Amino acid sequence: MQVTNHPAPTAGRASFTLPVRVYFEDTDAGGVVYYANYLKFCERARTEWLRTTGLAQNRLAAEQGLLFVVRSVEASYLRPAVLDDMLEVVTTLGKQGRASLDFAQQVRRDGQTLFEARIGIACVDRDAMRPIPIPPAVRAQLASLV
C-alpha cells in the first residue's frame, strides 16, 4: 500500500485551503467524483479550518454543549473531478449571524473551479438540538479571522 503525503492545509485570516486527493471510493460507476462527495470534501475543510482556529468541534460539544450543524446548502457542479486528481477545497467564512455562520466553498483543480457551494451553519444546543446564540468567546475568535 502506498501512502501519499498531502501538503499541509493553508489558513488565511478569512479563508482556508485543504488539499484532497480523489480516491477510487470517491468516484461513481462513470469514474467521476460522486456528487455527494463534494459535500463531504467541504465538510472536512470546514472542520479542519475550525480546528486550525482553535475551535475543535469535539471540544465545543464537550465543554460548551454546542454543535455547528448544516442548515442549508446551495451547490453548483461545474466540471467533473476524476480518480487521482489533486483538489483544493477553499473555504471562506462569510456572514455571521447571532446563531449562524455562512460559508462559501469551492473545490478546485489546478486553479479551475469544479464545484462551488454556499453552506449555512446553525449553532445548536447539543442536547436540545435547538438553535442557540454563538457564545461571545467563539464569536470573537471567528470575528478575528475576517
Rank of each mutant, 00 (worst) to 15 (best):
H6D: 14
L55M: 12
V90T: 12
P9Q: 01
A75C: 10
V22R: 01
R13P: 11
A45E: 02
R71M: 05
I119L: 12
L66T: 06
A81S: 09
R46D: 03
V69I: 15
V138A: 01
F103M: 01
M1G: 14
Q64S: 12
N58Y: 14
Y35N: 11
R118W: 06
Y23E: 04
A117W: 00
A62H: 12
E116G: 08
S15H: 11
Q141H: 08
L18H: 02
A104P: 11
A81L: 10
P19S: 05
T17G: 04
A14W: 13
L145W: 14
A75H: 01
L55A: 09
R51Y: 10
V32Y: 05
W49G: 00
G111Q: 04
D28R: 07
L101I: 01
T47E: 04
Q141S: 09
E48V: 03
N37S: 09
M86W: 06
A45P: 11
G54R: 00
G31Y: 06
P136G: 05
D28E: 08
I134W: 10
F68Y: 05
A117K: 02
A117F: 03
N5V: 15
A56V: 07
D85M: 05
M129S: 11
L66D: 03
H6S: 15
M129A: 13
I121D: 03
Q96L: 14
N37P: 15
R118C: 10
T92K: 06
F24L: 14
I134F: 11
R44G: 03
A143Y: 01
A81Q: 01
F115A: 02
I119P: 12
L60Y: 09
V73F: 05
P7N: 04
V89P: 11
S100H: 04
Y77R: 00
A117S: 14
A11V: 05
C42F: 07
L39T: 01
G111S: 04
T27A: 04
F24D: 00
V3N: 14
G30M: 15
A8I: 06
M86V: 10
P7E: 05
R44V: 09
R79Y: 07
R109N: 04
A117D: 08
Q2F: 15
W49Y: 08
A143N: 09
D28G: 07
R21Q: 13
R21Y: 07
S144F: 06
A75E: 02
A14S: 14
V124R: 02
T27D: 03
L93K: 01
I134Y: 08
P136C: 03
Q2L: 15
A99S: 15
P131Q: 10
V107G: 03
L66K: 05
D28C: 08
Q112T: 13
E25S: 09
L83T: 00
T10L: 11
L87H: 02
D110Q: 12
A11D: 04
R108A: 12
A56I: 07
L142I: 10
H6Y: 12
R79Q: 13
D84F: 07
A104E: 11
A128W: 10
A36K: 01
F68A: 02
V146T: 13
R98H: 15
T92S: 12
E63W: 11
W49D: 00
R44Q: 09
A29L: 15
F41A: 00
A137V: 10
R126L: 14
M129E: 08
L60I: 12
E25M: 08
R109K: 12
M86S: 12
V70Q: 04
L87S: 07
V20P: 05
N58S: 15
Y77L: 01
F115L: 03
